[in-house]
Design a protein around this nucleic acid. Sequence first.
DNA 1: TCTGGGGTCCTAGGACCC
DNA 2: TCTGGGGTCCTAGGACCC
Length: 431
Amino acid sequence: MIGLVDCNNFYASCERSFNPALDGKPVIVLSNNDGNVVARSAEAKAIGIKMAQPVFQIRELIEAHDVRVFSSNYTLYGDMSARVMATLGRFVEDVEVYSIDEAFLDFSCYERQIGREEPADLVTLARQIRATVAQWTRIPVSIGIAPTKTLAKVANWLAKRDPACGGVRMLATEEQIHQALAGFDIAELWGIGHRYTARLRREGVRTALQYSRIPDDWLRDNLTVNGLRLAYELRGTPCRLLELESPAKKAICAAPSFSRPVGDLATMSQALATHLARASEKLRKQGSAASCVTVFLNTNRFRKSPNGELAKQYSNSQSVLLPHPSASSLELNHYAQAALKAIFRFGYFYQKVGVLLSGLVPTDHRQPGLFTDLPDERLAKLSAAVDRVNQRHGRDRVRLAAQGYDRTWAMRQEWLSRRYTTRWGEILFAK
DNA sequence: TCTGGGGTCCTAGGACCC
DNA sequence: TCTGGGGTCCTAGGACCC
């Protein structure tokens, strides 16, 4: 059996973890730039705040219900996630960290111990896991248990919404699975988005049970091999195995929006250098070098001109193949800036400039070009030293000159909480 | 005033190879 | 009149995930 542990309202729960005064209050967390709602406590959902809703649309609701609003604090959420995952690792050897707030657990070690006659013991175990995570992190979780990952997802969805479950739901017998799928909307299935939902509804398919009975050929032809795998998983045949080693990323992207419209090349250039510094830090952290740099930019598709019409739009991108794979901020920025100059047009107000590093290869397996050498080893040492300094003393303490010191374009974070767990200066004091 | 960011996988079709 | 068979690689576009 496979367990899926999913943190409830994760970002909102993280904010609560170190601030008990928020218990029982509606709490929301906003996207980068304080734009949209990306997490809601149960109380916030109850008063009708929708996922991904722009925050300016719910000003009155926030006022009326004293909603506590937070900017995204990824430093805190990332660290809290690591704590939750480490807690899960105390119970089960094989944990697949699937996302910042979800993990699959392999329960087969327990099943071998207890044999087949006592399936309910997994529910008891899951309750223990739940209680321990709550005690150690103050993060509430729901746990679904079933024979396949997809069915565990279904079980988890039910565990979250049915108060009678107490946060744990197991689908073990054929009858339990059958009954759960018969009442389960295809729109909630893992791997069925809004396009496929519409397509399937036109075919008269509404429930997961109906989906599991669609002929294989139709699924293969219309929903690709993934749609077919989904059906197999619903029928109880595992097609998605636990991935215990997280594979290296194939592309790394950094493209946060500006806090305000930006029209000048100098500011765009500083923002690009800053995004590139973020992306190349990630690149070095996973031990990769990039062989291609892509720069892209776009205007704001919602922006209106003074006369009320949509402002004129422009977006473009350019990719540069490097003479050799590189992980040096200095070198990557050199090519990125050239690409920016090539696509930048005066007369527009831009919403963002972004960078994508791709063609990633392991740094120690780089192949030199036929007519070029590998980059100077000193560049790699320099990057490593800069990363160490910044890790210890704070982001961008040592930076590319091209990044500049003007941060007026940087994203809004009006309601940022403290980094309780990762900065000595922001640690919580108990009176 | 104000509308997110960062990823993965699959497929069809075109170009190419012997 | 008659024009093969079996492949690989790349890309754009579309779908999905959290």
